[in-house]
Amino acid sequence: MTTHPQDFAQDIRLSDLWDDPYPIYRKLRRDAPVTFVPAVGRYLITRHEDVVFAEQHPDLFSSREKDSLILRVIGANMLREDDPEHRRIRAAAEPPARPRRIRTDWSPVFQRTADELVDSFAERGEADLFADFAGPFAATNLAHLLGLPQVRAEDMIRWSQHMMDGNSNYADDPDVWARATAASGAVDEAVEEAMSRVRDEPDGSVISSMLHADDPLTPQEIRNNVKVIIGGGINEPRDVLTAGLWALLSDPAQRADVEADPGLWRNVFEETVRWMSPIGMYPRQTTADLELSGTRIPAGSRVALVIGAANRDEDVFPEPDRFDIHRAQRNHLAFGGGPHYCMGTWVARHEVGEIAWPTLFRRLPGLALDPDRPVDVGGWVFRGLLTLPVRWQRP
């Protein structure tokens, strides 16, 4: 008996998406590229061309989703605004994250963070690079960039994870809401302290930039948007860092190519963000009745631009499930598109591709996956490694 595509969508469970969404995405792209999934409470858009269309038409696919989970956790923010308000907020926050500033101001900070972390475990000969390096590396760097250097990496990581859990709490778990609310309040306190410090002495950080912009943000706008940045600014570089390492350590030939030509680290970065898509889905809400890939979507519908599916679209990326640093096609959507193109793109490219990976391979000779401890992977709204046990030759 043939299963109707809509019947398949009815049976999709959040736990299946968490464990391994790619077989589900493959079937949706083929049979129901735009379809309502009850478990998620929205239409999933899974083909590359349809996601691109939605990103290029913010007039039809608004970021101002009513009752969005991120609004419940964080409040009004630039991710859930359309232009011109989105443009105003971004213009105030973005200057410290531009390429020139990253290289002149932040690159030495990123390198110091990497070296100090490696110093803390190099003599052990083994580590979980998710917990011991990737998370603290991303969190420490972001704390400096934001203007929160006094905040510990473990606090940044906890706040980020609890808020992101709330942003993807489609199961409506009350414990998740409680943790997200507590994290949001803790960020508010840290930002208040930072604003007091930089109000009279600007320091070039994101908080300082927002406070001293030509069109400065209000304290509430600063608090809310710092929360947004803490979420993506830790999760995405952390998960790209660990996923790329996992892929290279699993493929001796591609690893040898990179070690022979360090210029390929850029390819590793772009292929990793396509292959893993750490931020796997963006929510939107339609502003008018429309039809997409043969499916009618009523005005006011909640939709999901499923980046993790679009970045493995067979019509765009040959053998999409294969990690290939020599892939010619690079028009991935990992950083979004249109006016909401990720503000932290250049930060992540530099701190991961030019600092973290080369440092780890240089300082941990014989770096290899731990054969006795498997890697854990999970998630779909945010997807990445949960552990990365490795070994190397002790000094």
Rank of each mutant, 00 (worst) to 15 (best):
I230Q: 00
R124E: 15
P371N: 09
S196L: 15
F269L: 07
A92H: 01
V187H: 01
A39L: 06
T140Q: 09
G232C: 07
G263T: 14
S277L: 07
D105E: 10
F323W: 04
W346L: 09
A93F: 02
F53C: 07
E314M: 10
P95L: 05
I45Q: 01
Q161H: 15
V240I: 10
D261E: 14
W392M: 03
L142N: 04
L292W: 03
Y282M: 13
A97E: 01
G135N: 08
G204Y: 05
D324S: 09
L364R: 02
R47N: 08
M1E: 08
V187K: 02
I157W: 01
W346Y: 14
L290N: 06
D370R: 06
S208T: 07
Q161Y: 15
R26L: 09
D19P: 03
D11M: 15
R13A: 11
L385N: 04
E236G: 02
A213T: 08
A127G: 05
R29W: 07
T272V: 13
P374E: 13
G300N: 08
P84Q: 13
E49H: 12
Q220L: 13
H57G: 06
P174F: 10
L386F: 08
G337R: 07
V51N: 02
I207Y: 00
V37C: 02
P33I: 04
A260C: 11
G344S: 12
D67E: 15
G384H: 01
D115F: 09
P23T: 13
I307T: 09
P389V: 10
G125F: 04
A122R: 14
S62P: 06
D119I: 11
V176H: 06
P237Y: 04
R373P: 02
V109F: 05
R88C: 09
N169G: 09
E291K: 14
Q220W: 12
L17Q: 00
R179Y: 10
L44T: 00
R223P: 01
S63N: 14
W346T: 09
N77K: 08
V381T: 08
S160K: 05
V191E: 03
I74Y: 01
D67Y: 13
A348H: 00
V268D: 00
R124D: 12
R266S: 12
L217W: 03
